[in-house]
Amino acid sequence: MTRDVLDRYYAAFNAKDIDAMLAELDEDVAHHVNEGEIRQGKEAFRAFCGHMSDCYDEHLTEIELFASDDGNRAAAEFMVNGTYLKTDPGLPEARNQAYRLPGGAFFTLRDGKIIRVTTYYNLADWLKQVS
């Protein structure tokens, strides 16, 4: 079941279907963003996804999923293939720069829903690629 949830979550990410991603989340999901604040709840997650869609066009490949035996914790490793579309405040100017970098995520699940997402990528690597 855990892998099915994550399969749907990442298929929705690659399809740019925010509503389908949200369907896999608990109402009170905690979203721990790389280099950012923890966002609490589905609406904060939706707002984050909207911002990301404005600034970045990303597609994940080489997705590998891992799950604990009890299904309550999971992880994913992947390659982020992206284009920097619009300048994100505090970051370098966007000029449609392409980037490719490894990323990962850690999850906690309860009752078939994601209650925590922690994402990671190497910001220094990304900055080097888009600068």
Results as ranks from 00 to 15, higher is better:
103 G>D: 04
80 V>G: 01
117 V>T: 00
111 D>F: 02
48 F>D: 04
75 A>E: 02
19 D>S: 11
113 K>S: 01
53 S>N: 07
18 I>F: 04
66 F>M: 12
19 D>G: 09
117 V>A: 08
61 T>V: 12
98 A>S: 12
39 R>F: 12
27 E>V: 08
103 G>A: 05
100 R>W: 08
43 E>M: 13
93 E>Y: 04
28 D>Q: 05
39 R>S: 06
41 G>E: 02
11 A>Y: 02
119 T>A: 02
122 N>R: 00
111 D>N: 01
30 A>V: 02
65 L>A: 05
69 D>H: 12
93 E>G: 03
102 P>K: 00
38 I>M: 12
42 K>S: 12
78 F>E: 09
80 V>S: 10
88 D>T: 15
60 L>K: 12
47 A>E: 10
93 E>C: 03
76 A>Q: 08
40 Q>M: 03
112 G>S: 11
56 Y>N: 06
95 R>M: 00
106 F>G: 11
64 E>W: 10
26 D>C: 12
82 G>R: 00
114 I>F: 05
107 F>R: 09
54 D>H: 10
98 A>P: 04
20 A>S: 12
50 G>I: 01
95 R>H: 07
114 I>V: 13
19 D>N: 12
61 T>K: 01
30 A>N: 05
52 M>P: 00
55 C>G: 05
42 K>A: 05
68 S>T: 15
80 V>I: 15
33 V>W: 06
44 A>D: 05
112 G>P: 08
107 F>K: 08
73 R>S: 14
50 G>M: 08
101 L>R: 00
100 R>V: 15
27 E>G: 09
64 E>Q: 15
30 A>G: 03
34 N>R: 01
66 F>P: 02
30 A>F: 03
26 D>E: 13
14 N>K: 00
68 S>R: 13
63 I>D: 04
72 N>W: 01
73 R>C: 12
121 Y>D: 00
31 H>F: 14
53 S>I: 02
11 A>H: 10
46 R>L: 13
18 I>Q: 05
37 E>V: 14
106 F>C: 11
97 Q>K: 06
72 N>D: 14
99 Y>D: 15
53 S>R: 02
97 Q>W: 06
